[in-house]
Design a protein around this nucleic acid. Structure first.
Length: 276
DNA sequence: CATTTCACCTGGTGGC
DNA sequence: TGCCACCAGGTGAAAT
């Protein structure tokens, strides 16, 4: 998400939305498409960034094009969640639309911001900040959270640490890959009860999570080219992950077989010899 | 309240 | 080639 947000930001920041189109599926519209269309039109894109797993497009005022041409004030937000298969693409406005394109925002520059999502698990939301609050979930940011607060998240919890890591109201932005990879790096078994981890283990986990995420962002960031899609991510995943989707393959540290189990309905990969 | 299960979707893969 | 079971970067409602 971080890589995608940066890529999109670099391509659309400062541009203006001149036309919007939404597909007719009932999903993935958290805000009715007609309201999104009305709200998005004629706004300047001030910036694009990531918050947890959401991509937030910050938008300027609608009623004063001259003032917002210079940028600055945020008065609305377009919030994109990509679900499992969502893509945010920046194309030219005349490029052929991919199958499962649900939203197209035509920009003044001739570019187009598109939302494509085959499985429709993604969500699109529009927020008018004059009428409501800015986007922000309860979950802490894994990249910046400090030791004390991190440990407090898991105190007294009986669920598996893997399940706790995936809970977006505790930590925002940790998905299945990074949960497995950070637990491997920290040497902790995914089934361990969150509340029973020692303070030392929790600190190892916090650092491992941060390092894994930073490493992923570095590699993903280097692979973005003229448009934004998942191609670059494939390279990272194949080359760098230690346990995720490596069931039966030898552990890169000790050589024993990587195991696969199910926790919280999600496939979970770990090394029984390196993780305790 | 905390935790787990399952439906929501389409597409790709591998077995027969 | 066709058919089918199974799996997939996530979440949130319903059940326990």
């Amino acid at each position: 998400m971080e890589t995608i947000a940066r890529g999109v930001n670099a391509r659309v920041r400062g541009d203006r939305i001149v036309e919007a189109w939404f597909g007719s599926h009932r999903e993935p519209f958290k805000t009715p498409p007609a309201r999104q269309l009305k709200g998005l039109i004629e706004r300047r894109i001030e910036s694009v960034h990531r918050s947890g797993k959401h991509i937030v497009v910050e938008l300027g005022r609608q009623d004063d094009p001259r003032r917002s041409a210079e940028g600055g004030e945020i008065s609305a937000q377009w919030i994109v969640h990509l679900g499992m298969t969502g893509r945010l693409l920046v194309t030219t406005h005349d490029a052929a639309a991919a199958k499962h394109t649900h939203a197209r925002l035509r920009l003044k520059s001739g570019r187009e911001l598109r939302f494509v999502d085959p499985r429709r698990f993604g969500r699109l939301e529009f927020r008018d900040l004059a009428k409501g609050t800015a986007f922000g979930g309860p979950g802490a940011e894994p990249l910046t959270i400090e030791g004390e607060e991190f440990a407090e998240l898991f105190r007294g919890r009986k669920l598996a640490i893997k399940a706790a890591l995936l809970n977006q109201t505790l930590l925002a932005g940790v998905g299945n890959i990074y949960a497995d990879e950070s637990l491997f790096r920290a040497g902790i078994r995914p089934k361990r009860r969150a509340g029973k981890l020692t303070r030392v283990e929790l600190e190892r986990l916090r650092r491992a999570l941060k390092e894994v995420l930073e490493h992923a962002i570095r590699l993903g960031g280097s692979s973005v080219s003229d448009y934004v899609d998942a191609d670059g991510m494939k390279g990272f995943f194949q080359l760098e992950h230690n346990v995720y989707q490596r069931t039966g393959e030898p552990c890169r540290k000790c050589g024993s077989d990587i195991k696969k189990i199910v926790i919280a309905g999600r496939s979970t990969h770990y090394c029984a010899r390196c993780q305790h």
